[in-house]
Design a protein around this nucleic acid. Structure first.
Lengths: 108, 108
DNA sequence: CAGCACGCTACATTATCTGTAGCGATCCGG
DNA sequence: CCGGATCGCTACAGATAATGTAGCGTGCTG
């Protein structure tokens, strides 16, 4: 159903296949970091997530959510909406210091 | 010279202007994370960086480098190439745990 | 059944990225 | 001083990816 890229197994930029490159590539798709960020502390329905993400288009959000689910970072909890998996939570914790950093960065 | 987006001051997704959103937006542009990653431990000339980034197109690398320089994360050292600023190094350290995570992620 | 919110998709338009070629500047050996 | 090599950087056409709007089918709830 979903359009499969016929080129390589879901890896866009990096052609090496090294996990870190695959991960960096995945994370640098539009809205991916933002989605993880918004889900960091709560579960959101697809529509609530859309609102949280400045009303990004449902097309791309759905695409990213599918990718993130395939990667094992995000899960759809029936009647609860989207939320992080254990793995996703672990990944997200990597980014938590980013908040404080961003504040310091603004005052540079 | 560089084409200025006439819409908003270099912020793409987020319209709130909150620093964390601006930062997440910047970091989720293609090749941005990869560039920071490749510069994490050494300075590279623009062409060496291009090679390190799977021969990404010079157009987009140059664009990203300009953005990263404007953000204060990357600097061009004459006769040495591109390297991280103190701020950039700080940001990059946030991502270092990602390497170990990526390895674990592969074996999920 | 009517009304509503859910996850998700179609599709035309627009923005962004790619790939190739090449510019002007600088450095270096002869 | 001149040819060759490399530097940072740009132009431009073609290919991809994202946007915005509309709406489908499903499962509730009254």
């Amino acid at each position: 159903m979903a359009k499969q890229a016929p080129r390589r197994p879901s890896v866009r930029g990096s052609r090496t296949g090294r996990p870190i490159m695959v991960l960096l590539d995945l994370l640098s798709r539009r809205w991916t970091l933002r989605i993880l960020w918004e889900l960091r502390s709560e579960r959101l329905t697809s529509r609530a997530l859309r609102t949280a993400c400045d009303d990004a288009s449902p097309t791309i959000l759905q695409t990213r959510l599918t990718e993130l689910r395939a990667a094992g970072f995000v899960e759809l909890f029936p009647a609860e909406g989207y939320g992080l998996t254990a793995l996703g939570r672990e990944l997200c914790e990597t980014f938590l210091p980013l908040h404080r950093f961003a504040e310091r960065w603004r005052n540079r």
